[in-house]
Structure formats: C-alpha cells, structure tokens
C-alpha cells in the first residue's frame, strides 16, 4: 500500500539513510505537553512518530512506558484526546504518524469507528502489540479500507516461516523486536546475538522495510543495530528523558522542548560536537 509512511521509508532507503521512529505516550507527562513534545520530536528529525494510546494493562511494556501510561490515564487522557492530538499534529506537519496501543480500547471505541476517526485525523498506521496476525484479519480489513497501515512485529524466537508470513501481512514496515523481553530492556552484552538474528530477519523479510526497536537508548545502539535494518525505533529512552526534563523546575517549557529535540537528534546523528 502506498502511504505517507511507506513513501517516507522508501525515500530514506533510496538516499541510503536509516529511518528513525520515536515513541511518545499521549498525555505524558501532562495532557498539555503532547503538542509541544510531538513538535519537538518532529523538529529533532524523527522520520515517523509513534503516539502511544495509554492503556491500564500494557502487557508488553517495561517500567518507563507502563509508568507513562498510568500517569496519562490519571490525568484523564482518553482515546478521543489522542485522536485529537494526532489531528492537530497533522495540521502542523507531514511527518508520518502511527498510533500504538492495545486492542481493548480500540474494540471498545469500535474498530470501524476508530479506523475512520484515525484516518480522518491523518494517522498513517497502527501498531497493536497484543494483536498478532492470526487475530487481526478483521482489523486489517477495516484498516485497509481506510488506508491505514497495520504494522506487525517479529521477535528473536519467531520461526523463519512465520517471519515470511508476517512480512506478507504487514503494511508499512515490519517491527523487529530486539530481544524476547519488554520495551526498554537493556541490550548490554547482547548486541552480537541480536545482530545475527537481525541478519536472519533481513533475509526473510524482503517485501517490507525492517525497523528494529526495544531497548535502543543511544546513538551507538542505533548505529550498531541499523546495520542489517532500515532503521530503528526509540521509546522508553525518550520517555525517561522527558521525565527527567520535566523534573527540572528551572527549565521553561520552551527549553524542555528544545532539549527533547536535541536528544532526538542525537539519537540519529550522534551527540552535538
């Protein structure tokens, strides 16, 4: 499917550039911060943004993203709020935007209504970590109708044949999870194992761009793990950086935004000289 997302990824690839996706939990650290942070991440050079829809029971998340979801829900963030934040962002930017979230709030919203609203808001696709392909056929149909990409994931323990199948079903890209573990898990000492798995994944996944994520914290991580992939995704590290900056009372909101942009930029281009 030709979408804003796949066009962007294709362009980067033909320029020999790695793609960077950045995750942000909607409504974290406060509902008012979302617009500012989306702009900062965009400004920092994200090639696409994953906006997380907070859920009470985020099964695949490590502590930072769990915590950010709890925080956002406590502040009263709803699915509606996230869709509105997405729509507003789309009026300011053409950067591809995905929504990432768990299936229950989407079903509660109404799968069709949700797809319709997301498409109208200018969202490009969805990542639903608890919706593996064998449960996704209906959702996929709705999403295709509204021109939304449904991105599936593979993991180090995914059998080779299944990787091919997921490549066939995934739209936009295939999300290659670094480790059997949660978001934000440290990768120290595991890079060699991960790279040999990424190499295998690269051989199996030929239709879609391949992006690697989970546990990537630094420019060095990103460089190491992008060798066999088309790019990388950073989530927990961004959430932690946001949390750190928002705990500094001496910083103004504008400064925080600039520092987030700088952090994001450093993930792709290395620390500023």
């Amino acid at each position: 499917m030709n979408s804003r997302l796949s066009t962007r990824l294709l362009t980067l690839k033909s320029n020999g550039e790695k793609a960077m996706g950045i995750f942000l939990t909607s409504g974290f650290p406060s509902p008012e911060a979302t617009n500012l942070l989306l702009d900062a991440i965009d400004e920092g050079g994200a090639d696409f943004i994953e906006l997380g829809m907070p859920h009470s029971d985020p099964l695949a998340e490590g502590l930072p993203i769990q915590h950010s979801s709890t925080c956002a829900l406590k502040a009263g963030i709803t699915m509606q709020d996230t869709l509105e934040a997405a729509a507003q962002f789309r009026q300011r930017s053409e950067t591809p935007l995905l929504l990432m979230g768990y299936i229950n709030p989407i079903l509660r919203f109404g799968a069709v209504q949700f797809c319709e609203r997301a498409a109208a808001a200018g969202v490009d696709g969805l990542i639903i970590p608890d919706l593996p392909p064998q449960e996704a056929s209906l959702m996929r149909k709705h999403m295709q109708k509204y021109g939304l990409n449904l991105v599936f994931l593979v993991a180090p323990n995914t059998p080779t044949e299944r990787m091919k199948e997921i490549d066939r079903l995934s739209d936009g890209f295939v999300y290659c999870v670094t480790i059997t573990g949660l978001t934000g898990t440290g990768l120290a000492g595991r890079l060699d194992t991960i790279n040999s798995y990424l190499k295998r994944a690269r051989e199996m996944i030929t239709h879609n761009p391949l992006l690697v994520g989970f546990g990537i914290r630094t420019y060095d991580n990103a460089c190491d793990l992008s060798k066999h992939t088309d790019g990388f995704i950073v989530g927990s590290a961004v959430i932690k950086e946001v949390e750190r900056l928002w705990a500094c009372p001496e910083l103004s909101m504008v400064e925080r935004g600039q520092l987030v942009a700088r952090f994001v930029r450093s993930l792709k281009y290395g620390p500023e000289k």
Binding site: L59, A60, I103, P129, D130, L131, P132, Q134, E135, F152, L153, V154, A155, N157, T158, P159, R162, I166, V177, T180, G181
Partner: peptide
C-alpha cells in the same frame, strides 16, 4: 491476543 514473542 498476545505479543508475538508468546505466539511460538
């Protein structure tokens, strides 16, 4: 309805 890691 589970993460891909648990499918196998």
């Amino acid at each position: 309805y589970i993460p891909e890691i648990l499918v196998p």
